[in-house]
Design a binder for these strands. Structure first.
Lengths: 350, 350
DNA sequence: ACATCAAATGTAATCGATTACATCCTAACT
DNA sequence: AGTTAGGATGTAATCGATTACATTTGATGT
């Protein structure tokens, strides 16, 4: 059976072959596949049988050329190796692939050349829409994604002053809540381990940190703001910086702009004999799987990672199909402070 | 300047528009872009100027339809959230995108429906090649990826009895080396934390474990083979199983079929008061980034993750361009035992 | 019995690029 | 000067599907 069909089909059957075998016109074959209800029962079965026998599958390039669609969306990710994005991608993938869309993952990896290639790809009509997880509208030397004329949706990293839908969490308020948690435990000397300077998430989380300190009447101490770039490595470095301080002037708590840095910092601090959380409470941000695997388990802000992906994908689908749905949408999903073992009141209260 | 071009271009310029503006035929435009050396200098500059002014980018669907290529490869991944695959993907992405290919990531996630959708996609000519990281040739109810007539290359998980190139490490020998390390430290009671039963990697690593024990004259004890499925969660469960044993009959070392499970097991064991490596030495497999972040750092087999991806991608490119290069290639990349802090001689030697 | 209409199907234009083949032109050789 | 070779460009077929419009068919109403 499957042997036989494999023999019949030489290259790949085209719609004309099916039409010939079924004794109908190509239009009828096309209709049978697209809107079965408009062809009469008897024709339909004949056509479907011919489709089966020839092993016919429509040529997507031809269809795309004709209907000007690709059924592909491009997802721009700063870094696939970052587990946070991997989980957001799952949500995107679930939603999009259920709706029949394929996805091209653009791993920007900080490379402007790659970014430019992907912009050109989209401008060339290779995608029906773009999901930006990267905090900016992608550019090539002479083009901008907005020129491509395809729907855009941003997620995770808010892009200011844009008119397309965005799906994010409220980073400012959430960061503020994280720091407030430390304040409520009694900490007054609270450090901040930052993300890369011009990153929007960084700015928002820093703002939340500032607000929380201000709420508590604590002055911001610039020396307690440690530079980082969201990687484990800079977490380790920040840990060393912290250890170099005299114990007396060392903060009793730290809020990290993401989990990976928090985990790097904890590792370094522990290796040097510091007790976490006894000597130093740490709060992270993101809620990656590892935050629950490490030791001690990390108190952190859990972002609805799959939810962010799924919601953004749904929004993009709406734009791609309904044409113009309401843009300007600014969807905020709830994030949650997850209390685990890395935070505790300071040893010497006050 | 960019303002002006943005105004000129109404929808998207097609090749005919460029031709008209440059005062040449469409063939000349096409040639100028594809093989600049065949058109005379003066024409070339005129055409290129017209291209710039119109903001022309070729319509890829049309080109694909004509030349029967897509410049897209599909990568089948068992699970994007698995950090091991994320790193392999980076290698793939680097190589493929440098060669101008886009990639569609098929996150199988154990779903036969998704798998089938992707098979149909490829059979419909949506990809020029497929990279299988998933240990089997993908199927849909009535089709098989081999029917698609596109080049295939497998990586990471060896697929027996297939004629396409495969890029893997030698799992049997490497696992054997990992266990030999434990033997050489003096361990004689060595457990194995397995992967899912029918997975080829699992079978090979188990075989390596068996061989190493045999080499050392140690009898295999079926009760020391703990079930797992490569996830952190089953590592935790295996940890509990281990803890339930009387200390006297508890193994002094364990080889886990991957890092995530090893890390889960270590966490559970430590939480129950077991010292790692003093009470239990642990060796993992894969060398994910986290193996160096956790506590204690994990002795493990480091796979050349980017290398696997890059090599497989290069192999696929060769097949896609040269048409038929030598198939049957079985490329083995070296993996390395990385000694870290989770292994040590047993307390009571002998 | 004829006009009318709708349902079913067919015909052919169309999407936008590539490229085989045809044509034109110039330079070089006899 | 006439012929020719080959370089540069143009013309038109082609890739394979979708779909507007045309045609056929049969049923219904008068």
């Amino acid at each position: 059976m499957s042997k036989r069909t494999r023999v019949i089909r030489q290259k790949t059957a085209k719609i004309a072959d099916v039409a010939r075998l079924a004794g109908v016109s190509v239009a009828t074959v096309s209709r049978t596949l697209a809107r079965p209800e408009v062809v009469i029962e008897e024709t339909r079965t004949r056509v479907l049988a011919a489709v089966r026998d020839t092993g016919y599958t429509p040529n997507i390039s031809a269809r795309n050329l004709r209907v000007r669609k690709t059924m592909v969306v491009l997802v721009a990710v700063p870094d696939i190796a970052n587990p946070f994005f991997a989980e957001v991608l799952q949500g995107i993938d679930d939603t999009l692939s259920a709706a029949g869309y394929g996805l091209i993952i653009a791993n920007l990896a900080g490379s402007p050349e790659k970014e430019a290639r992907y912009v050109d790809l989209v401008c060339a009509g290779q995608a029906d829409g773009v999901l930006l997880l990267c905090g900016h509208v992608m550019r090539s030397p002479d083009r901008d994604l907005r020129d491509a004329g395809v729907p855009l949706v941003a997620a995770c990293e808010y892009i200011p002053r844009e008119s397309f839908p965005q799906v994010t969490i409220n980073n400012v308020d959430t960061a503020r809540e994280a720091v407030r948690h430390l304040v409520e435990l009694g900490h007054t000397s609270i450090a901040y381990l930052s993300g890369p300077n011009f990153n929007i998430l960084e700015q928002q989380r820093l703002e939340g940190y500032r607000q929380a300190l201000h709420d508590a009447g604590i002055a911001t101490d610039a020396s307690l703001i440690l530079p980082g770039d969201f990687t484990f490595r800079t977490g380790v470095e920040a840990g060393r910086t912290l250890l170099a301080l005299k114990p007396a002037s060392r903060p009793t708590a730290l809020f990290a702009a993401n989990d990976e840095m928090a985990i790097g910092l904890i590792k370094t601090a522990r290796a040097a004999g510091l007790q976490i959380p006894d000597d130093l409470s740490v709060v992270g941000f993101d809620g990656i799987a590892y935050a629950d695997y490490c030791e001690p388990t990390l108190t952190t802000i859990v972002q609805p990672r799959r939810g962010l992906g799924a919601t953004a994908a749904a929004e993009l689908i709406a734009l791609m199909t309904n044409g113009r749905a309401e843009p300007q949408k600014d969807i905020k999903l709830p994030a949650m402070l997850m209390l685990r073992d890395s935070t505790r009141p300071p040893r010497r209260s006050g």
